[in-house]
């Protein structure tokens, strides 16, 4: 029974990890930008959910509707006004730029919200459902469902819509896309906006689960990074696969070797992947 519980824990946690990572993966895959501001976007999303719930009693699953357009605009503008200027420069330049932006956003949050840990506590609480002896918290289930829905939406968007095809085209061959009449700077901005929107939504959902503080942004960013390397960049299913693998390794590692070695194990796995399978579980050079 304990094995079933650990498996369920890992499945749910894996979907949360995917939710954290998917926007990061999109931006990295399409723009080749390692977006260090991603973690702070998630935290900002969490504060949005916290504020909306405490001021207006808007539960987080509705707050997603507010967060998505808001963060899309924020991301779009950031890319249009700042990142597009250096997008063709070597990857270190965009890395440094997003690092700087992250410092600004993170410290602004510390200034305005303080570094105190807060918690979005729903009243009445959602509780947990138990089947036989296996317990699953409802808030995690909601976040899991939302993560799967967001992943599905993104997949459909990239596959079916004109904009999605354009994003994929830019990713596959930037020069050819230009020749086909794709407005590359605009596509970049849309992709970054989507990445930001996904981060914001992830933050809203994580607010139900994790303590909220600007100091947690690096933890989110770290997980997103590992998930992307494990799952493979740019592909929608990659984030999901990477998230599940990471959660499974952490859960099993924690049970058999103690929780302090769970992280060690996940980083050993990271190194193994970097050496033996740098494209990740399901990563491809381009994606469909």
């Amino acid at each position: 029974m304990q094995a079933a519980q650990i498996l369920i824990n890992a499945l749910v946690l894996g979907c949360l990890y995917a939710c954290i990572a998917i926007g990061f993966s999109l931006v990295w895959g399409v723009l080749n930008v390692i977006n260090l501001i991603h973690g702070s976007f998630i935290v900002l999303g969490a504060y949005l959910a916290f504020g909306l719930y405490n001021a207006l009693h808007v539960p987080p699953w509705y707050a997603v509707i507010v967060a998505a357009p808001l963060f899309f605009v924020l991301g779009y503008l950031l890319q249009r006004l700042l990142l597009n200027r250096v997008i063709t420069a070597p990857v270190l330049v965009t890395l440094t730029l997003t690092f700087g932006l992250d410092l600004i956003l993170n410290n602004a949050m510390i200034y305005f919200f303080k570094a105190d840990y807060r918690k979005l506590t729903l009243t009445p609480s959602l509780g947990s459902v138990s089947i036989l002896d296996v317990v699953v918290p409802v808030d995690r289930l909601i976040a899991t469902a939302a993560a799967l829905a967001l992943t599905g939406l993104l997949y459909l968007l990239l596959r079916r819509s004109r904009i999605g095809r354009a994003i994929v085209a830019v990713r596959l061959d930037r020069d050819a896309a230009v020749l086909m009449g794709v407005n590359v700077p605009s596509i970049y901005a849309i992709a970054f906006g989507l990445g930001a929107a996904l981060a914001g939504c992830a933050g809203v959902l994580m607010a139900l689960i994790f303590p909220i503080s600007p100091l947690t942004s690096s933890a989110y960013l770290g997980k997103a990074f590992v998930v992307c390397v494990l799952g493979g960049l740019g592909s929608v299913s990659g984030a999901l696969a990477g998230g599940l693998l990471l959660a499974l390794v952490e859960g099993v590692g924690s049970t058999f070797f103690g929780p302090s070695h769970a992280t060690t194990l996940s980083f050993v796995l990271l190194i193994v992947f970097l050496v033996l399978r740098p494209q990740g579980l399901v990563g491809r050079k381009g994606f469909e």
Binding site: S254, P259, S260, A262, T263
Partner: peptide, 10 residues
């Protein structure tokens, strides 16, 4: 547990 652990469920 390690510093920075995000999940204690296991």
């Amino acid at each position: 547990y390690a510093i920075g652990t995000l999940d204690h469920s296991a």
